[in-house]
Write a protein that binds this DNA or RNA. Structure first.
Lengths: 224, 224
DNA sequence: GCTATATTCAAGTAATCACTTGATTACTGG
DNA sequence: CCAGTAATCAAGTGATTACTTGAATATAGC
């Protein structure tokens, strides 16, 4: 009985460690982060992360073996997606644990994004409330497909690469809030920099769509 | 800007992966599980897990490097403990993700614990309510130190090793509920087996103290 | 100061992991 | 059926990890 208890425990912890192992690689975490925005093909993920296609495929297969992703083949493309909402929730928990435990994250973030104002000027919950009320112009600066897969209600799709030439579409007097994939995504940071340079009043919302959803707010679907 | 974005992302995901790496080993997960019951010395953890002392120490240091544990030395003993409640919460999240995603866990559990009745006979929430109301005799069958570090209010400390010779202390007519460290702990399973063999009406509560606390219920502290 | 004990350190070995490269498979469109 | 492309597979290499063993440190009690 005592002996077989050992066997049982070994087997269970071995299984739990499958999830841990899947989360043990920076590359795989980046893939999960991207997939939290919506389904994607191998090729798209490889392009976005800068990894080789074979390597990307291998990482995706490991995530799939841990049941964190599902894959379906349509024609010549294989589309990977998160296996469930609980996977996104778990990733968010990991992220917030890391943020609260590892001072290094705040340090690194401050180093790269932390010019005055972009990060800390605005109270986050207050910003969220303004976004909810619709008292600001909200820009989704991610690629259009991601906007289509899910966006904050009322937000306009304005991918970063188009932003500069579409500035004319933006109302002048009104404050602007830009968001992208989440706290470690640099798109919105760049957008805010550009907007401020051109005289707009702009702030960055750190939340991505998964974070927004986790706050309990609704998400809109469909192209612009 | 784009280039430095890559550097930033690499740095951030590298940090997140520190948590994942810490969780990637079955041994370390078992250590976390034990430490969720309360602080412990290296020696005690080594004894409980059957690992060598040096190996245990090394795993503990890795967990500490990921800031999941803190250590304090008192005399010749080093006591490790979870770095915060969020660590226990995260471990619980990992566990529940694994349970919902990996069918293997249920399978293994069924194989080892799943004789009729021990696991599935009782509705879990119903059992919890009976424990809360005090309408059953609740036994904490873990070692006495763990009981002292925190137990379900109203539970009696009755370590598994003493159970057989202390059966006389138990009321005959009343239903008994035994609990231990959590769903993968075999102490309560053994206790229930013994009790039933001796004619008691006994059930196992799968929750451990951390799970009980996570339900939002209070925890009592101190020896019997 | 000496001894015993808890813990950590250092070094070595086997196993596993990450990434690359080149080949292979599987499907689409002509 | 053929060419082109997305994805996977297979094999190889260097890096990292897990565990063991034996030595080193540090503290308590004598």
């Amino acid at each position: 009985m005592v002996r077989s208890g050992r066997v049982f425990k070994d087997a269970v912890y071995e299984q739990l460690a499958r999830i841990g192992k899947a989360m043990a690689s920076p590359r795989r975490l980046e893939l999960l982060d991207l997939l939290a925005q919506g389904p994607r093909t191998v090729e798209a993920l490889a392009r976005e992360t800068g990894m080789g296609v074979a390597n990307t495929s291998q990482h995706l297969q490991e995530l799939r073996a841990a049941r964190l992703l599902t894959a379906d083949k349509r024609g010549v493309y294989v589309t990977y997606r998160l296996a469930g909402d609980d996977v996104a929730a778990f990733y968010r928990t990991l992220r917030s644990l890391a943020e609260s435990r590892l001072a290094e994250i705040e340090q690194v973030t401050r180093e790269f994004l932390g010019e005055r104002g972009v990060l800390e000027a605005v109270d986050r919950d207050d910003l969220v409330q303004r976004v909810r009320r619709g008292s600001v112009t909200v820009l989704d600066v991610r690629p259009a497909e991601e906007y289509a897969a899910g966006h904050i209600p009322g937000a306009r799709s304005m991918p970063l690469r188009q932003l500069e030439r579409r500035l004319g579409e933006l109302p002048r007097g009104r404050a602007i809030v830009a968001y992208c994939r989440g706290p470690y995504c640099v798109l919105a940071v760049e957008a805010v920099r550009l907007l401020r340079r051109r005289g707009f009043r702009a702030d960055r919302l750190e939340d991505g769509v998964p974070d927004w959803r986790a706050r309990g707010y609704g998400v809109a679907v469909g192209a612009a």
